[in-house]
Amino acid sequence: MNFPLILFVLLVITGSICLLDYLFWKKKRAAGESEPWWVEYPKSFFPIILIVFSLRSFVIEPFKIPSGSMIPTLLVGDFILVNKYTYGIRLPVLNKKIMDMNEPKRGDVLVFRYPEDPSIDYIKRVIGLPGDVITYHNKQLIINGEVIKMEYEGDYKYVESGFGYIYSDRFSEYLNEDSHSILINQEVKGLQYSNVREFEFRDNCKYRRTGFTCEVPAGRYFTLGDNRDSSSDSRYWGFVPEENIVGKAFIIWWNFGDFGRIGLSIK
């Protein structure tokens, strides 16, 4: 369901009724005559729809985390807020940028429209910027020839799809001065080659049994999930086009199963 499009259609309908009533219909009603319901209701809902549409389009938008690909940073059931303007102002519905602001940085938690099906929103961490060379070898991340520092934090377990516990190792990964946590399951290969698809700029990547190397094209970004061995990400379906970017995730505003997560910033 394309909720922004639905909101836009409702905004146009209610706004048009308000305008037509102001210009024509109101003048034809007798003094003291009540507004018909099909005018009263749209006029009541128009300012609410306008506020919601403006906030979702230009300021913040709520999302719910549906999968465990970003564990331990984000858990299934987290409700998050996404900053819509930090990377620039975009036209609603069309998602066309009309004003540049900031560019995504390595380590940002990015919400974007899935390249293979833009009707689906994905959330992953930005690993590679345009021009970067990304290597993932034996579960070690290397960017532009620099081995990314990792520090072991301890064991981590979580329930996957209600079938039982998954046991992984938790590490701190340093893409910038700040660190974030990732999970690595030592019992799973770092690359499931059978899941690699054909995608745009596929020739920019070289795959091996132990990993891959990809050069990020201009106007594209390379993303990975923090739950490295349980994530469908850029190593399988390719690069994220700049025009697919929705915004930067910055806070968890609700979780029905764990109130302690409410208000946590997303790093």
Rank of each mutant, 00 (worst) to 15 (best):
G225R: 12
W253A: 02
R197S: 15
V216T: 03
G260Q: 00
K189I: 08
Y41H: 08
K84E: 12
D132S: 01
G68K: 06
P36S: 06
E116Q: 11
I262Q: 05
V147E: 11
L23E: 04
D78A: 02
K28I: 09
S34I: 03
I60S: 05
I252R: 11
I120S: 05
N102D: 14
P72Y: 02
N195R: 15
K189V: 07
T73A: 08
Y136C: 09
V216E: 01
V93F: 08
S172L: 15
G154T: 07
G145S: 12
K64D: 05
I6D: 04
M101S: 10
T135M: 06
E200D: 14
Y167S: 13
K26T: 11
V109W: 02
S234I: 14
T213I: 03
P130L: 06
W253N: 01
W37H: 00
E187C: 01
G145E: 05
K139C: 05
L10P: 08
K26M: 06
L19R: 00
E33H: 10
R235Y: 10
V159G: 09
G77E: 03
L23M: 11
G145N: 03
M101T: 13
V82S: 08
E153Q: 09
I49F: 08
F250I: 08
L141E: 10
C214Y: 05
F24Q: 00
Y236M: 11
E198M: 14
Y158K: 09
D226T: 12
K267D: 01
P36G: 05
D155N: 12
S69V: 07
S34K: 15
N2L: 09
S194V: 11
N83A: 02
I143R: 01
P62N: 07
F58W: 13
F63I: 02
V196W: 04
G145T: 07
H180D: 06
L50E: 05
K248T: 09
N195P: 00
F171C: 04
L141D: 12
E200M: 11
L20W: 14
R90E: 10
V12N: 00
D117V: 02
D78S: 07
V188I: 15
I182E: 07
G32Q: 06
Y165R: 08
G211R: 04
R209P: 00
P217S: 03
P130F: 09
